[in-house]
Design a protein around this nucleic acid. Structure first.
Lengths: 201, 201
DNA sequence: AGATATTTAGACTGGAGAGTCAATACTTCC
DNA sequence: GGAAGTATTGACTCTCCAGTCTAAATATCT
């Protein structure tokens, strides 16, 4: 009778284990790259056997794809929130940069996987990623272009400026170590300052 | 009798084929990542069989390591030349940025491999790479620090500023496509301008 | 308790690919 | 022409790993 309730409970429990597996996989993938990580590695890093992973995921690709989806969901939600604010281009750009820098440093593993293992996705998945990336970049670009139009920013091709700025943030995943040196927030602030200063008219 | 001459000729010929193999490997590695490229792939992209590659290289790792060495040699030589010039910090930093941006865009494959496949090297090779990277970064950092000391640059931790700037250049390997949009030189100039403007006091 | 649904273990298959080896082709030199 | 040195081939081995399958263990419900 309570079959609905049971299904729900089951789903919640499964979601929990899936999260666990994804987190473990992300750690390993980021460190060594997908191809160098076996399903056994993922499982045994959690004290499970391979079969458990295959019980919760269809195959290796699905684990990876889930990671990509989570990256996107998190980044995109944050970006949407900022885009909806009614602020002038310079403040909006500052917010975008700061948030992106923080996101990268908050989850350096995700960023590492995103850049390193994109080619391991299927063609279809890769197009989806490309599309999402276009949307992401466009928000940066449009914000910059608006700033140029209102005389706030230097008249440099928006695609170049924003690619540079986004790149500055992205690469932080390589060198940023939490707990060493400046905090993520401090670094994000510096980056924002440098970038805005750099393109301010 | 002309054994010296012959050895030399042989060496030159072998070096030529090795270059060919390395170039082919670099193209493939950059596109798909080391683990996804077989020795057969490399060989047959040149019309050879696997054995030819094994005739010229001990194993897959040596091909990769040779690529890393060439990246380093090229980048380091360029950097040395700039460091030896007797110019003020701001002009020196500008030259470093411009050159690095150009190097990245000139050989996007190399940069892709450098960032993506570093973990495929042996421990010892990885330490060597880390050491070289430290030297590379130090030149940027010291130049910036000098600029701060002479009041040219903002007083932001040099490691942060320069990591940001280097990152901006590095990431260009992901999106730069020669022949599309601005040229590498134009982009390098814009980056230099943005960066210098960004940290100028 | 016992029936049913869910989760885990472990053994197995099949394919792919790194690296080896012995045999063959091609060059160069005398 | 033939001997020594150089380059190339293709068949073979051996290991590793993704993914499957069956059976066992555990939890849940009545």
């Amino acid at each position: 009778m309570n079959t609905n309730l049971r299904e729900e409970l089951k789903a919640r429990k499964q979601a929990y284990v899936q999260d666990e597996i994804i987190a473990a996989a992300a750690r390993l993938f980021a460190e060594r790259g997908i191809r160098a990580v076996t399903i056994d590695d993922i499982a045994s890093s959690l004290g499970y056997t391979k079969s458990v992973v295959y019980y919760y995921f269809k195959n290796k690709n699905q684990v990876l794809w889930e990671i990509f989806n989570r990256i996107h969901e998190a980044w995109w939600a944050d970006m949407q929130a900022i885009m909806e604010e009614d602020t002038p281009p310079d403040r909006k750009l500052a917010a975008l940069i700061r948030k992106h820098a923080l996101n990268v440093m908050d989850r350096t593993e995700w960023t590492a996987i995103y850049f390193r293992d994109q080619s391991e996705l299927t063609e279809a998945q890769q197009s989806t990623v490309a599309e999402r990336k276009r949307d992401f970049d466009r928000n940066f670009r449009d914000t910059y272009a608006k700033g140029v139009a209102t005389g706030l920013f230097k008249d440099i091709p928006p695609a170049i400026v924003t690619s540079g700025i986004i790149g500055m943030c992205n690469q932080a995943h390589v060198w940023f170590k939490p707990g060493k040196g400046l905090s993520a927030a401090e670094i994000a602030d510096h980056f924002t300052e440098i970038a805005l200063n750099g393109c301010h008219r």
